[in-house]
Nucleic acid binder design. Sequence first.
DNA 1: ATCGTGACGAACG
DNA 2: CCGTTCGCCACGA
Length: 107
Amino acid sequence: MKEEPSNFYEIVYKIIKSIPKGKVSSYGRIAVLAGSPRAARAVGYALNALKKDQEQEIPWQRVINSEGRISFKSDTTRATLQRKLLESEGIVFQEDDKVDWKMFGWP
DNA sequence: ATCGTGACGAACG
DNA sequence: CCGTTCGCCACGA
């Protein structure tokens, strides 16, 4: 018998860890996979609570919003870092700063 | 238990 | 097209 993680955070983290390199997913998408289709905000909340050592373990950069874009408003530093990391993995941002879901979307 | 908050999403004007 | 508003869910105080 295996116990599924009861905490929403754990489920979210587990899903994010399973995102293959070179692919990206969205908050809403993660929420659906976690069993709560409307909990996109909670997903973002979970990632915001990541510790520094967790950031090394969890590919948080592969999670973007439904538009295929990076959400940050007041944290351009993180946004730039995220984009940089994704580009290092082969993700291509279009001129609109958007990612093509057909090419890099996961699942 | 209730309230406020947030790395969202979809709808509206 | 853009900016704004409302609704959604989970967590911490």
